[in-house]
């Protein structure tokens, strides 16, 4: 049996803001490997393609079934999850880079804090706490629940922000992920009670909804197939109406 190998080129960086360089690794081929198991093989034996000892590559992973978003990285030029990137389906050498839209902590580990801050900013939750029992909320019709489920698949992985030409160091754009969550929580019968507040959040400050330039890369890149651009257009309609209500006045808060 011939010794089949897998070649990986990995962008290494030891510290935040530090210099980066590519390192090549050759690891033995096994069947059904994904990028994560290839990285685990490097961790087991951190020796580069020239036989020099090096440090183990840092990366993040959690669920290993493409629902947590932690292992997102740029694989052969496109951002995606390492767990669902199967070696047999990738062209070699496999090039792994961190998602450089975010601060790179080390090697392939990035800091996606801005995404979680955005979710807090837009209040991407259903407020149910009160000083008294609020009772059961209104029911959600089943077809609407199914529709909303598609939007709820977002795992805050950051792929849409990486793909967006308007998310970069020159712009404060909040990005598609958190915007689509505004649409999701505004559609919920209880969440709807805070609709105007969420809309005003994305109309306020720099980098809100209007920073979208409609390149529509996000909807192409999203690993969960979330209709991000439809969400943005729907929010454009909602915020337009909200702006008219705010200016001309309305009894519908």
């Amino acid at each position: 049996m011939s010794e089949k190998t897998i070649t990986l080129e990995i962008k290494r960086q030891t510290e935040q803001g530090g210099k980066s360089q590519f390192e090549t690794f050759k690891i033995p081929y096994r069947e059904n490997m994904n990028v994560i198991s290839a990285l685990m093989e490097i961790r087991r034996n951190p020796v580069d393609a020239n036989g020099n000892e090096t440090t183990a590559v840092s990366w993040e992973a959690s669920c290993l079934e493409e629902v947590c978003g932690a292992c997102s990285m740029v694989i052969n030029g496109k951002p995606r999850q390492a767990c669902s990137a199967l070696i047999d389906q990738l062209e070699q050498p496999i090039r792994l880079e961190p998602m450089n839209t975010f601060p790179v902590v080390r090697d392939l580990v990035v800091d996606r804090r801005r995404m979680f801050d955005s979710l807090k900013r837009v209040k991407a939750w259903i407020p149910i706490d009160g000083t008294y029992d609020l009772g059961p909320g209104p029911r959600m019709p089943e077809p609407k629940r199914q529709w909303a489920y598609e939007l709820s698949k977002c795992m805050t992985c950051g792929v849409c922000l990486q793909a967006c030409p308007n998310v970069n160091s020159k712009s404060e754009f909040i990005g598609p992920a958190a915007l689509s969550q505004v649409r999701l929580f505004n559609a919920h019968p209880t969440g709807e009670m805070h609709k105007a507040e969420r809309l005003e959040t994305i109309m306020d400050g720099d980098g809100g909804l209007t920073n979208c330039g409609n390149s529509q890369n996000c909807v192409q890149a999203c690993p969960k197939g979330i209709p991000l651009t439809t969400s943005i257009a729907a929010l454009n309609r909602d915020t337009t109406l909200q702006a008219f209500k705010n200016f001309f006045g309305s009894d519908q808060v």
Partner: peptide, 10 residues
Amino acid sequence: AVTWGITVSP
């Protein structure tokens, strides 16, 4: 049309 929320659906 997108910015003003006229064309929403793909």
